[in-house]
């Protein structure tokens, strides 16, 4: 059986590395530390799941990224696991921001800090 592919986008290398390590025994995992290279990898590699940090450097860069992603036909239905939990720091409710855009389909949320075991369990449920 082919291994399913997961792409992790987060600007924090420690986070992407540890997430990768937590998942790599079960999935084919690649990482990107900024949205530009993330988008390039998405297009060329076509992962089955995207794990996305929504609040890169305290802007809503991840949110914007997910927004643009949904506009593209090939990624319109791709499952996205959104890593949140920093929202409280700037007073933005991420889930609400996403709900407003009516794109909740195939969108999952996980709060930082994320335990690797918990991450694996969650990913198994999604794909």
């Amino acid at each position: 059986m082919d291994e399913k592919k997961i792409l992790i986008i987060d600007d924090d290398v420690d986070i992407t590395r540890s997430f990768q390590a937590a998942l790599k025994d079960h999935y084919d995992v690649d990482t990107a530390n900024d949205t530009t290279s993330g988008m390039a990898k998405l297009k060329s590699w076509k992962p089955d799941l995207l794990i996305l940090d929504v609040m890169m450097e305290t802007t809503l860069e991840g949110h914007r990224f997910a927004h643009n992603l949904r506009k593209e036909v090939e990624f319109a239905d791709m499952p996205v696991l959104v890593i949140t939990g920093m929202s409280d720091a700037i007073g933005v409710n991420i889930r609400e921001a996403f709900t407003d855009s009516e794109e909740l389909q195939n969108l999952y949320f996980l709060d930082k800090p994320v335990d690797p075991e918990e991450l694996l369990t969650r990913v198994k449920k999604i794909i």
Binding site: D12, D14, I15, R17, S18, F19, A21, A22, T58, G85, M86, D88, A89, I90, G91, K112, P113, V114, D115, P116, E117
Partner: peptide, 25 residues
């Protein structure tokens, strides 16, 4: 205070994640 908490939490999240992997391994 929120800003500080955010920064501390960011570091702690990374530490926890890394230790989580090490612990499991």
């Amino acid at each position: 205070v929120l800003r500080i908490t955010h920064d501390i939490k960011g570091h702690l999240a990374a530490i926890q994640s890394c230790l989580g992997v090490a612990n499991k391994k």
